Amino acid sequence: MPKSYTDELAEWVKQREATRPRQDKNVVAFLAVREKVQSGIDAGYALKTIWEHLHETGRIPYRYETFLKHVHRHITNAAKRSEVVPAPAAANPAPAEATPKAGKQAEPTPRKAGGKGEKPAAIPGFTFNANPDKKDLL
Results as ranks from 00 to 15, higher is better:
W51R: 03
E83R: 10
A46S: 02
S82M: 12
K135W: 03
K116E: 11
A18N: 09
R16I: 06
S82A: 15
A43L: 09
P88S: 11
A43G: 04
A18V: 06
D133H: 03
A113M: 06
Y5A: 14
E11R: 13
E11V: 13
I75Q: 02
K116F: 12
K14R: 13
V28E: 05
F128G: 05
A43M: 12
T49I: 04
R81V: 03
F128L: 08
E11H: 12
A10T: 14
H74Y: 15
E17R: 13
K48C: 05
E52S: 13
T127D: 09
F30W: 05
E35K: 10
E107M: 00
A18R: 11
P86Q: 15
N131G: 01
D136I: 02
D133P: 02
K80M: 11
Y64L: 05
I60D: 00
W51C: 11
N26W: 15
Q105I: 00
F67M: 06
P88K: 15
Q38F: 00
T19F: 05
D133I: 10
P61Q: 05
E11W: 07
T66V: 04
E56T: 05
I41L: 14
A94D: 09
Q105A: 00
P93M: 12
H70N: 13
I75C: 08
A29I: 00
K104H: 13
P21K: 14
K69F: 11
K36Q: 08
A113E: 08
Y45E: 14
F128A: 05
T19S: 11
R22S: 07
V28W: 09
H55R: 08
G40W: 03
A113H: 09
K104C: 03
N92R: 11
P2E: 15
P132E: 03
H72N: 13
N77P: 02
A96P: 15
K69V: 06
D24Y: 08
L9G: 07
K3R: 13
P93E: 15
D42Y: 08
S39K: 11
K119M: 11
R73I: 09
K119V: 07
F67L: 01
A98R: 00
A10I: 10
E35W: 07
P86L: 14
K3C: 11
Y62W: 07
T19H: 12
T19G: 09
P61F: 06
F126K: 06
R16W: 10
T109G: 01
N129T: 10
G44R: 00
N92F: 13
P100L: 02
G44E: 04
G44M: 08
D136R: 03
Q23D: 09
H70A: 08
T99H: 00
Y5I: 07
